[in-house]
Amino acid sequence: MKTQTATENNVIVIEKLCKHFGDHTVLQDFALSVKKEENVVVLGKSGSGKSVLIKCIIGLLKPDSGNIKVFGQNVPDMSHEVLDQVRARIGFLFQGNALYDSMTVRENLEFPLRRHWIAASQNEVEALVMEALENVGLAHTVDLMPEELSGGMLKRVALARTMILKPEVILYDEPTTGLDPVTAREIDKLILKLQDKYHTSSIIITHDMNCVKNTADRVALLLDGRCYAQGTYTDFEHSTDPNIHQFFE
């Protein structure tokens, strides 16, 4: 198992991150770094604090202490304006997709564009929306409402919305949870395809071992609020540590 240290090649560096909710400690001195164009999967049991971790990275939750450096800037110290600029370079795929159910697919995809690229013309916006939907094979759903889509389609549209600003880093919160195995593999392939096309770095939160196997360049195990172990999928697969081995049973 390797220990990652901060280098100039890292797009995300997390150091001594602590987060408590009341008396409950969720993250305690958590450390992790992500290199450019690297997929890091954070593995952990339900309730281990994986979602809290990526919400701290994107600034939706404020950590109690520690540093989260994204593109060299510390997220907890950022002003709202700077945080918004950084967020334009980070995509976030929510576990439940979080598509706006009062908007069509087109409006859902236009929303972040209109917010971050205020000067974009209607033609530019339209082209980007169609490109994003074509990337996930759902160009024909552009005028549908989210309620008219299946679970797999919702995930793909959410992925298209995540990718529309062509982010340099993408945070995936359990991207395959609740999907059937076939659709889950399709989402894994899409993650890899989009990473290959746009050269993104990713943190993927999951406990789906097939997703880990298909997408991970490196795996980090979150246990008791700490980064318990790091390594490749193969390292983890051959580990005799019971805390790691239990994920392969």
């Binding site: 976030f92 929510f94 706006y100």
Partner: peptide, 21 residues
């Protein structure tokens, strides 16, 4: 009900991530 539903389904968080207050 609308904002409650948006809160529960993380749409409010998605809005914040999209650069919207």
């Amino acid at each position: 009900a609308e904002l409650g539903s948006m809160k529960v389904t993380e749409q409010i968080d998605a809005m914040e991530v999209s650069g919207t207050n």
